[in-house]
Design a protein around this nucleic acid. Structure first.
Lengths: 408, 408
DNA sequence: AGCTTTAGTTTATTGCCTGAACTATATGAG
DNA sequence: CTCATATAGTTCAGGCAATAAACTAAAGCT
């Protein structure tokens, strides 16, 4: 069940294909095969040979490199009727990466081992709205250092990290171009300070994109093509195509929150007019539903909305129905442009799904008939920690795709 | 100027990376380097070595294979001041592919040599509207056979072909899923019959996608990321990202004609509501402008529209302005979803550009400020033969990317 | 003519994968 | 208990492709 088209020159450079590239490519192929085995099952070298098409001899040699680098380890035996049992292999549980998230109401970190298990997680409530970047990053660094220390005591080495933020990030690296709800514009982050001396450094992700990757890993239906819609204060999106995040040429694809859904609608913080976010963002829904309570916490307001919906209060119901209808228009456009037929609702869209679903499906039927089957409109499987887990998972994945970056 | 990230296992299969894959990858790398040199300049082996990063020895060996396969040939000498002159190389002018197109009002074929020169072209007017597929394909086969014979007399061998049709095609191959203006639904085409015994067979393309690829090849600005919008009876689109056609997971990305631009608008032939095509398709514009002449030819109606516009007739001007405004809404959505910042107008959008441009730019400013610079909204460089040339070019390109399919 | 410069080829070396033979370790039959 | 069988994993010779460096080829310059 492996099937990646093995590319040789991993690191995207202009290097021509040479013989050594084959080694790198096949290291990633073998490591990817190990990573893709179902959790709990530990493939043997022979099984990997079967899955990848490489010979047993090659796999043995490649596995040896990965063992030496400490990326994988041998674990137990796989008896199988007759014959010598295979030696189980798994991604090393003593190597890990750190997922980190900065959001409007909190900062959080998690340590995830290479096999994808969450070893530690810590959330700190913190009002980051309109807070400058440095103190936020300093607080995050303290949190990260503490968790990293705890991981060290468990004998786990943190190799690198991923940081998710609710805004557009510079795909090249360490710059947040705009994060309206944090009040950040073109902010350069000192990512290295978050995890000093980590072998792989820290990568920066858009929150919705990271959450989309977490969905990819945890989807029960195993979908490999979908749009993840993240409903927070803003409305974000992450497009997954062929089990890869699709970011577009500039790195900011999937901005479903700013698709025009009401040409004569209101102004948006992005400068546009009639964007989905002006109808279906949290603030917009709260206001339209009449539950906005300035000063109150966001989760309290959400509780009030849910209560109003349960009570069948017309204003609340109408607000959510309008949001659902407009979400449908945006998803219809997405289906036409990137030819996606599957949607995962996250954030408040997941919470409000019982009330949102029918107007959404009606809208999709009206504007993009036949493009989305109703069973392809689903709710997030990972919940509120999606961005955190996705940021970590993405770093693991990039290591799996280029293991030579670590020793070897 | 070469820089493709060289992938080893070209043919997408599950084959693991072996040593021989390096050879295939580098054959494509060398051939690509030759193909990308400006027309008229013929690179030497040494120049290719510099461009690709391979050593002179490797290039010599790879070039020998390509010469043996007849894909390239040596042509003249490149003196350069001191030193031994290099031997020029170019894609073989005695090998060619055939571009073919079926459209509403005509069928056409062209023979294009591997260097991209159009050797022969033939257009046959024919009313294919609501014509069944077999007679159309039979007529096309006759036209193709004639042109192929003429090419043979020039000493040119036709290796394969590409066929462009105005509808959604099955990415796997030979099926037209739906072509509303031909009246075709789920039609299987016997492509092999078009070019019997051609080494590479015949590939099927969507018309707008093929035209987008032709734009890519002929753009004066060298843009490698853009949306091509094809205005015909229907409105189609082709998305080019990183010099590659982006087709999405199902193969039908870029359907800009069916983005919702007027949520309370009219019904569309696709079953949707308020699609761009209902406002900006040729029939819609003609009707709104009051120049619809049933029975008259399409080009006569277009002339009437241009005359009305030049005369400043309010109804015609308003129709085009409305189309431009709605086109802006669709392009705004595209910018958000795939993060594209450049648009090429084709078909009637190119013809109407003088009247369309201002309302389009105003609309983009209103709905997606900052996403498209006005100089990134341009008119097609290839004109009406885009689909034809693009279909041929795409087949050449696939040969360049996998030269081992031919002899070698 | 002879020096310099650049193009292209030849040769030895290296790295990696493959295939086949070989060793290791389990189950099951007699 | 022992031997046949089956499967896992390793070792070793062979081949292919790229590299580096030396070498040959063909021009201009003095």
């Amino acid at each position: 069940m492996v099937m990646p088209a093995p590319a040789v020159a991993g690191s995207g450079g202009a290097a021509p294909g040479s013989v050594g590239d084959v080694r790198r490519s096949n290291l990633a192929l073998v490591l990817g095969a190990i990573a893709e085995f179902p959790p709990g099952t530990h493939p043997s070298r022979a099984q990997i040979a079967g899955a990848t098409g490489l010979t047993k001899a090659s796999v043995s040699s490649l596995v040896l490199d990965l063992l030496d680098a400490g990326i994988i380890r041998e674990i137990g035996l796989n008896p199988q009727g007759r014959g010598r049992p295979g030696v189980g292999l798994e991604l090393s549980p003593s190597r890990a990466v750190m997922g980190m998230e900065i959001n409007v109401d909190y900062i959080s970190v998690a340590v995830v081992d290479l096999a994808g298990r969450v070893l530690l997680r810590e959330v700190q409530e913190r009002d980051n709205r309109n807070s400058p970047d440095r103190p936020v990053l300093a607080a995050l660094a303290v949190l990260a250092a503490g968790v990293r220390g705890a991981a060290g005591e468990l004998g786990v080495e943190v190799l690198g990290g991923g940081l998710a933020v609710p805004g557009l990030v510079d795909p090249a690296g360490a710059r947040v171009l705009t994060a309206p709800n944090l009040g950040w514009v073109n902010v350069h982050l000192d990512l290295a300070a978050l995890l000093p001396e980590a072998a792989l450094g820290v990568e920066l992700f858009n929150e919705a994109n990271a959450a989309a990757l977490a969905e990819l890993r945890h989807r029960p239906d195993g979908a490999s093509n979908f749009l993840f819609v993240s409903g927070e204060v803003g409305v974000g999106g992450g497009i997954v195509i062929g089990s890869e995040l699709f970011t577009g040429p500039g790195g900011h694809a999937g901005e479903v929150g700013h698709i025009v859904v009401e040409p004569e609608g209101g102004h948006c913080s992005c400068g546009g007019t009639g964007c989905l976010e002006t109808v279906a963002g949290q603030d917009a829904i709260f206001a339209a539903a009449g539950v906005a309570t300035d000063g109150g916490s966001r989760s309290a307001t959400m509780s009030a909305l849910l209560q109003a919906l349960t009570a069948g209060e017309p204003r609340a119901v109408a607000a959510v129905e309008r949001a659902g209808g407009c979400l449908g228009i945006a998803l219809a456009a997405t289906a036409r442009i990137v030819n996606i037929d599957s949607v995962v609702l996250g954030g408040h869209f997941a919470v409000l799904e019982p009330w949102l679903r029918t107007p959404l499906l009606n809208s999709l039927q009206k504007y993009a008939p036949g493009k989305y089957a109703s069973e392809r409109v689903t709710v997030s499987a990972v919940g509120e920690f999606g961005a955190l887990l996705g940021a970590a998972g993405s770093v693991i994945r990039s290591l799996v795709e280029a293991p030579h970056r670590l020793h070897a």
